[in-house]
């Protein structure tokens, strides 16, 4: 049996890419989501239906991991939701949804699995966001929830080292269904896409596989000295001025 990995939010997008890549690297992977097992999920990857915002469900998920996989070498907290609103527009339900999943969900999973990881060694990788360090408009709760994830990452690294390493990956614009929808809704989708590409020094958007690559590295012994850090994987987007390409075409 390989090393056991739990990836939250693995039904599609980034989480799915991470789960499949870890499987191909020889991990025994369990992933989860709020819905039923996706039909196209490779059969070798385990599935559990769970809502990470509910601590009873995460405790059960952690127990399943320990019982059926014999432990947990790697926890990837990827599950996340977003609500596109300002503070003034956000309802109590929005707060519960975003903070419940993005903040409490990460906390729940870490709390449930840290005792085992401290004893046997383990790696936690949280998926944060560049929006936790710089603000995206109309994404107030999401931005704040990701900043929570970044600070929690540092605290876990500090409190639970040396047996546990904990880092965060901060994706930029990753090509997912969500991003495709955003372009489709633009007044001039082609122009919007060209503009967005010009803002990326890499001249492309990210792929879920780019994030999975970083997960594999951070999970490995090659990253044995890396802990408590937030690594941006964004094609250079946040290293460039927000004024290009307007001012500098």
């Amino acid at each position: 049996m390989g090393k056991a990995a739990l990836v939250t939010g693995g039904s599609r997008g980034i989480g799915r890419a991470i789960a499949e890549r870890l499987h191909s690297e020889g991990y025994d992977v369990l992933t989860c989501g709020r819905g039923r097992r996706p039909e196209d999920l490779p059969s070798a990857i385990g599935w559990a239906q769970a809502d990470v915002s509910d601590s009873e469900q995460t405790d059960a998920l952690a127990q399943k991991m320990l019982d059926e996989y014999g432990g947990v070498a790697l926890l990837v907290n990827n599950a996340g939701v977003q609500v596109e609103k300002t503070v003034a527009q956000s309802s109590n339900e929005d707060w519960e949804k975003v903070i419940g999943t993005n903040c409490r969900g990460v906390f729940n999973m870490c709390r449930a699995l840290l005792p085992s990881m401290e004893k046997n060694g383990g790696v936690i990788i949280n998926i944060g966001s560049i929006s936790g360090e710089l603000s995206d408009g109309n994404m107030a709760l999401y931005n704040a929830s990701k900043a929570f994830v970044h600070a929690l990452t540092r605290s876990i690294a500090l409190d639970h080292g040396p047996n546990v390493r904990c880092n965060a990956i901060l994706p930029g614009w990753i090509e997912t269904e969500m991003a495709a929808d955003a372009f489709a809704l633009a007044e001039d989708p082609e122009a919007a896409k060209t503009d967005a590409l010009k803002r990326h020094p890499a001249r492309r958007f990210g792929k879920p596989e780019d994030i999975a690559n970083a997960v594999v590295w951070l999970a490995s012994e090659q990253a044995g000295f890396a802990t408590g850090q937030c690594f941006r994987i964004d094609g250079g987007l946040t290293s460039a001025s927000p004024l290009q390409p307007m001012l500098f075409s």
């Binding site: 995206d136 408009g137 122009a191 919007a192 503009d195 967005a196 987007l237």
Partner: peptide, 11 residues
């Protein structure tokens, strides 16, 4: 506030 924001895509 210029540098507090993620680049605003023109969508």
């Amino acid at each position: 506030g210029l540098s507090a924001q993620v680049q605003q895509m023109r969508l």
